[in-house]
Design a protein around this nucleic acid. Structure first.
Lengths: 350, 350
DNA sequence: TTGTACGCGTTATCAC
DNA sequence: GTGATAACGCGTACAA
């Protein structure tokens, strides 16, 4: 705050010959003043150049209107877009967001949480994966998580199972001989694991040959590329002459695979069908637009904040009814059919 | 804050038979207590499960340690990565960030600023373009802007001029007959305008034929693609048989151009050289890695926060020396030579 | 080394 | 419709 004294309710009160209380009412319950007096105060505010101080208000009424966010590195489009959408809910809910980046160390994230609690945030949205939901559930404020392990806390997730199921379904409709799913090894507890389950359940239910390839691709393009190249080499060998439908767990790797194929064959060969996951910009901007399963990021963000706001409001009641069970919202994914599966004439012209 | 009474310094004081002051000192100047007494208080904190309250501390000492951020839509990699890096400076400076998304309406952003001021932020980082720097300079707190009009406030920017100059230089070294710069029309006041100036200055200084194409490409892939297709058609016509060096003002459009060329010719023709701007992921992930001019986002972010912190500290002194002139830091870009200019054998195998 | 008393700027309670 | 007064939880002269 400023060195030089700020204008306070006291100053305005003296200037207008009202009491502090009345000035406060002007802001919080203006209808209780006569229009005339409202005008007097309004004028005084301008004349004295009053700047409101929400810190003092918080101390007095306990409502910070802060929501804390802990989110991984924004390098992935999914996270930056999600943060974008969450922050944009300010227009609707008027909560302010204190944002921390973290997905590395439990110890560090506990410090972030302590810091957030010290600022009296009213609720928290967690996208990082480090701290178990059981621990989160012990915190004294409502929590909503997004696309992470969520057994003991509220969450909003995409129906990843349906996504994997749909991806396999699309490839199957194109009469692929063998369906392949490329993914990174992941805990069975995170929603993204459903992509694998949905895929393999579809294949089993429909008696379709399939293979699941799990590999740690690292976090850079350069680390993933040679690994995908090796995988591709093996596939070409193992399934020569067969129609291969490949479901890659993210668009970035799907794009690498596509580029490898095109740089090798000059085009996407007729016996390859490809679908990614995320509907990230790369899927649209690739040399051949890539079919993909999209998450409804805007809706997820809105539902997460909305769910949080409900609970924060509940706590403000005289007799709050705590949740007996965490609420888990699940939103369907959206299938985008593009040129890597719907091979139009456009494709052959490449 | 909680309904049920929080544990306060008072409670701890009573419990330990110290005064509130001593408890306060335990946190702010622990060395002034005996080790023994520190231990007593430390134990009490745990026993009573004390949660610190920074809101009360702010009201008492005026230091929020808040920095406000107004940043455009995180869709562009530049902004999300910049936000990422800014937020990550928490590790170094321990300032907390209140983030707003905005780049549309002056009116709305003024509200954001009022809200931020109400929370007594100590400084602000602005990346959105809507509010003129002259207006920003009248605010009662230090401001640092990044890559936007900055005449009246401090800023940290990339040396866009050098970037444009380098891009033209690289294309010239490959003995292109004609250099073309594709950009969107922009105010001469924003740093990005330097890309155009650097490009054309280089061309003029070296007597190289060049053309500048300015077009409003919209904000989506779908809107830009047909426009770039038309531009390409015209270029093929106008400069048939000539070696064309194209400097596109961002990697997204450079990638679209590259894809158009490859889908038409099956490869990047020998008479095309291409360089983008931003070193965004797409430049690396494109079917042919795209040469580009990269901004040092990590350094810019660090310098921006650092510059801001300096001034916030200055204000806390007994006799602050205000800046007589805004400080403008300018950081050099980095040239990435990739396959769209350095045509190796890898290229011909496509 | 420790304690007292007051201030920070607002809201809540009760009274008029 | 309006006002006096006590919180809210912590920092800081100043005193001891």
């Amino acid at each position: 705050m400023d060195k030089k004294k700020n204008v306070t309710f006291n100053d305005i009160a003296k200037y207008t010959n009202f009491s502090k209380t009345t000035i406060s009412r002007y802001f919080n319950n203006p209808d209780s003043l006569t229009l005339e007096n409202q005008q007097i105060i309004s004028d005084a505010l301008v004349k004295l150049n009053y700047q409101e101080n929400k810190v003092a208000r918080i101390l007095a009424n306990g409502k910070t209107e802060f929501i804390g966010i802990i989110i991984p590195d924004l390098y992935h489009h999914f996270y930056s877009e999600m943060l974008n959408r969450i922050l944009s809910t300010y227009e609707t809910f008027h909560y302010k967001f204190l944002v921390f980046i973290g997905d590395k160390s439990e110890e560090i994230e506990r410090q972030y949480i302590q810091e957030l609690l010290a600022y009296k945030i009213e609720g928290m949205i967690i996208l990082s994966h480090t701290i178990p939901s059981e621990e989160l559930s012990t915190l004294p404020i409502p929590i909503v998580t997004i696309e992470r392990e969520d057994k003991f806390v509220c969450s909003v997730n995409t129906d990843n199972y349906m996504g994997g199921y749909q991806a396999a379904g699309l490839l199957a409709r194109h009469r692929c001989d063998i369906l392949i799913h490329v993914n990174s090894p992941s805990s069975e507890l995170i929603p993204a694991h459903g992509r694998l389950l949905g895929f393999s359940d579809f294949c089993r239910e429909h008696n379709i040959d399939h293979q699941i390839i799990l590999k740690e691709f690292g976090h850079t393009h350069d680390s993933a590329k040679p690994m995908l190249e090796a995988i591709l080499g093996k596939l070409e060998c193992d399934y020569e002459g067969q129609k291969k439908g490949i479901f890659v767990s993210n668009d970035t790797n799907a794009n690498i695979l596509l580029n490898l194929l095109i740089r090798k064959h000059g085009t996407l060969p007729d016996d390859y069908y490809l679908i990614g996951f995320d509907n990230s910009p790369i899927s649209r901007e690739a040399i051949l637009p890539i079919s993909t399963i999209g998450q409804q990021i805007d809706t997820i963000a809105y539902e997460a904040v909305s769910l949080l706001v409900e609970q924060m409001n509940e706590r403000k009641k005289r007799k709050p009814i705590p949740l007996n069970k965490p609420i888990h919202k699940v939103l369907p994914p959206i299938l985008f059919r593009r040129e890597t599966t719907e091979k139009s004439t456009a494709q052959t012209s490449l």
